[in-house]
Amino acid sequence: MRYIIIGAGAVGGAIGGRLAESGREVVLVARGAHYEALREGGLRLATPDGRGTHLLPVVNDPGQLGELRADDVLVLAVKTQDSIAALDPWGHRPVAGGGTAAERLPLVCAQNGVASERLALRRFRHVYGMCVWLPAIHLEPGSVSAAGTPLTGILHIGCYPSGSDETARRISADLEKSRFDSPVVEDVMRWKYAKLLANLANSIVAVTGLLTSDEGLALYRRARAEGDAALAAAGIEAVGDEEEKEFRGDKITLEHFDGSERTGGSSWQSLNRGTGTIEADYLNGEIALLGRLNGVPTPVNDALQRIANTFARQRRAAGSMTVAELTALVDEMAQ
């Protein structure tokens, strides 16, 4: 199988680099300065067990690959707000032996949130969800670091909307030879909804920095309580905290191998890079959507969604608001 990583940032770069290290064939898809850096100098991947440069094929347009292969696997690893733009160039591409990518190839959504799988299924017949627990950072073109050890990440995979098949098992086997735990599950969205609830903290981290203070944790708990209520009203089951904790165990610990402190997650990185967009619409905004559909008030998530989007749009610096200021603003907006 050849893995085409659509979005070779923190998650995509870590998955692609680890797959390449275990001898799997990988193509990276990137854009802008990151594409140029990957093309000219390769993917620089730093992990607790060392630093390496992977000279992998890299494209910024599927036309550069020509006809796709029947054994290709498309791995979508962009932020959800970029999913449609990232997918549109790939669906109509011809595949060796006949048909198109949308008709024949597996598409794995290795992303936060729960919306991309549905977006993808409108275009692709064979969609797989992936719940991503992978602490990784991408701040500079051409460079990705992943601090997890002894495993780099945990990547639950399953068919969307549910089920499993031989393709999922083959992808899992390749990942498990590449420093990942990758359970094949029948209910992958149940795991992704649990991750969604955890990711409601992303906007708080992006705006204020690491979630370490009692005040910051209190704000997250308010957002999480709304999330729990919205999922319950919608009849959506998520993996519980105890089940998740028991499964993860000590499979991943963070090792600050470069001497630096752990920086923020995916939303924090978006603000840090000044991308102009952030995934809040598909994290806090997912809870807001479920709340509106099911008559559940979600004022804290509504406010966090708006504040995070304002930060991204205005390209305000990550971590530039105090938790006290954010809490006061949320309370004001929630009235």
Rank of each mutant, 00 (worst) to 15 (best):
A20H: 09
A173I: 03
P183E: 08
A230E: 10
V184G: 13
A37M: 05
V144W: 05
K177Y: 00
L290K: 13
V323D: 02
P94M: 03
E21C: 04
A230L: 11
E103S: 10
R51N: 14
R51S: 13
L134R: 05
P150G: 08
V108P: 05
G285C: 09
P48S: 09
A37G: 07
T208K: 11
G216H: 01
G276M: 05
L107Q: 05
G274L: 08
N294T: 12
A77P: 04
E117C: 14
D281I: 01
R224V: 08
R224D: 07
D228R: 14
V108N: 04
A173P: 09
S320T: 10
S83H: 05
E25A: 13
G235W: 06
I204K: 08
E325K: 06
T149E: 13
E166P: 04
D181W: 10
V95R: 01
L155R: 09
H138I: 01
L87W: 02
A14K: 02
D61H: 15
C131Y: 01
S164Y: 07
L175H: 03
E40R: 15
T80Y: 02
M333D: 05
A101S: 01
R31H: 13
I84G: 00
R169I: 01
D228C: 13
A233N: 11
P161Y: 03
G63C: 03
A229S: 15
E186T: 10
L155V: 07
G113T: 10
D71T: 03
E243W: 07
R170F: 00
E166L: 13
E21A: 15
G319H: 09
T208S: 13
G235S: 09
G264R: 00
T47D: 00
R24Y: 10
V144P: 13
E25C: 00
E215W: 00
I236V: 15
R122K: 15
V185P: 06
V188L: 04
D228W: 12
D61G: 06
L329R: 15
R224Q: 13
A33K: 12
P57V: 02
T327A: 14
G153R: 11
S162G: 06
R170E: 15
R93A: 01
E166S: 14
C131H: 04
V11Y: 03
A324Y: 03
L151K: 09
V144S: 11
Q269K: 02
P89I: 01
V300N: 04
N309H: 14
Q314L: 15
L211N: 06
P297V: 04
P161T: 10
G32D: 10
G66E: 08
S172N: 11
N202Q: 03
D49F: 01
G265K: 06
R24G: 07
E255C: 07
F257S: 07
N301R: 10
F124I: 02
E226P: 12
Q305C: 12
